[in-house]
Simulated assay, not measured.
Amino acid sequence: MKFRLGEEYLDNLDNFDLVIRTPGIPYLNQKIQQARNQGAIITSQTKLFFDLCPAKIIGITGTKGKGTTASLIFRILMKKFIGISVNVYLAGNFGVDPFEFLDELKKDDEIVYEMSSFQLQDMGRSPHIAVVLNITDDHLDYHQDAREYIQAKYQIVAHQKPGDVAVINADYIKSFAFAGITQADIWWFSLQKEVETGAFLQNGKVKLAYNGAKEEICKVSDLRLRGRHNLENILASILVGRILGSRINQIARAVKTFDPLEHRLEPVLERKGIVGVNDSYATNPEATISALDAFPHPILICGGKSKGLKFSRLGKAIAKKAKRAILLGENQREIFEAIPYAHRRKAVLVDDLEQAVDKAVEIAKKGDTILFSPASASFDQFSNASERGQKFKELIIKYL
């Protein structure tokens, strides 16, 4: 095996017949496209898996909530197959590398696959069931613009056929548009209105509608996940479970006992009547706005490495919903200036996460929530969002 390393490692790719692209390299990279134009086959691990997989794939995409939704669907389907010789696998960014179990797969198995825009961009096949969550702008440090980002996401439904299923969030214009691209049957979910075929909220209850009938799954007060965005994730997961034959009582039991995932509105510690919450995987402004909605006037710790996104909506949300905002990272000044001028006194600028946690604990009083939800990437001070979240947990335990 020969290795090609260094800054020019992508030069002369047209010398190869087959190029396997990792998700970290954009499909529209100039050198990738030069190789394709010279006749090289450009593929990826995800494309290869879809070509080779004999089982049914449930693909999940969205700007926020993919990991939680994939994990909850996996939990629901696992309950369905207890005592049956059918396997369910969780794959993608959050689950296991799919090639670890490819050789074990049977036709009746089911694969729950979390799919990012990086993976979807050059797909020529779509999953049997495609789940489209909230779609807002993100990853503009990777994609050329917001249009290219959404077009990459479109691939999750673009190649579906009649008999496939698309589960789509009806509350976001950009998500709603996916319905015009797919040939699949569409099941909707909504927090804002009742839908004819799908899942929705009504009078504090989670309901399912299909074939002219309505069924109650559970009460919102029964759920452990917090935040409206997590209600969206739950509705989508319920639909996939029902489409694939899970019983209502199995679905209800799964959603009522499902806890937040690590680094996703994860309660870390409650001490002196103060709660510390780790939401390190909130890497864009919309995710942090959703986190602010989940708690009454939290002390927000926010900031990191910019992804080319705008902070105007987050600035207004901080003004309206946060008790205080402690800002760190290379984009702290950008976030500070997005807060309406009259509310900037809420904000404190610090050098690093340790100073931020120390300051938050100093400010906090009994009944407060210290919410770490960065709205930014982690790469200015950490190798990834998991390392960043782990550091927050260590610090909140130390200082609180």
Results as ranks from 00 to 15, higher is better:
I58K: 06
V86Q: 14
L77E: 05
K80G: 02
I42G: 05
K47H: 03
R75H: 10
V86Y: 00
D51C: 04
N29L: 02
V86A: 01
V88R: 03
R75I: 00
A55V: 00
C53N: 05
R36I: 07
Q33H: 04
Q34F: 05
P54I: 08
K31T: 12
F49K: 02
L77M: 13
D51W: 06
I32E: 01
N37W: 07
F50L: 15
A70P: 04
Q30D: 15
F81C: 00
F49D: 02
T61R: 09
G59K: 00
F74R: 04
A40I: 04
I42S: 06
K66L: 08
R75L: 05
I73R: 09
K56Y: 01
S85Q: 12
S85D: 15
S85A: 12
S71G: 06
Y27E: 05
G83R: 07
K64C: 12
Q45V: 08
Q38K: 15
L72D: 10
F49V: 02
K79Q: 09
G39N: 05
F50R: 01
Y27H: 12
K31R: 15
A35G: 05
F50Q: 01
T69E: 09
T63P: 04
G65N: 11
I73Y: 11
V86R: 15
V86K: 14
F50G: 00
G39L: 06
S71F: 08
I84W: 00
L28I: 03
F81L: 00
A40S: 15
I57F: 03
T46R: 06
L48E: 11
K47A: 15
Y27L: 15
G62S: 08
L48A: 05
R36D: 02
Q38H: 12
T69M: 09
M78D: 09
T68A: 06
A35Y: 05
L48F: 02
L52D: 10
L52N: 11
K64L: 12
G83Q: 07
G39K: 08
A40F: 06
I41T: 14
S44W: 13
G59R: 01
T61P: 08
A70Y: 04
I84C: 00
I82L: 12
Y89V: 04
N37T: 13
T69A: 10
K79A: 13
F50Y: 13
Q38M: 11
I73Q: 10
L48G: 00
K47R: 12
K64E: 14
D51S: 14
S71H: 07
F74I: 03
T69I: 10
S71L: 07
I42F: 06
D51T: 07
L48H: 00
A70D: 04
G62T: 08
A70I: 06
T61N: 09
I32D: 01
L48P: 01
F50S: 02
F50D: 00
T61H: 10
V86C: 03
Q30R: 15
K66A: 08
L52I: 03
T46K: 04
I84R: 10
G62L: 11
G67K: 11
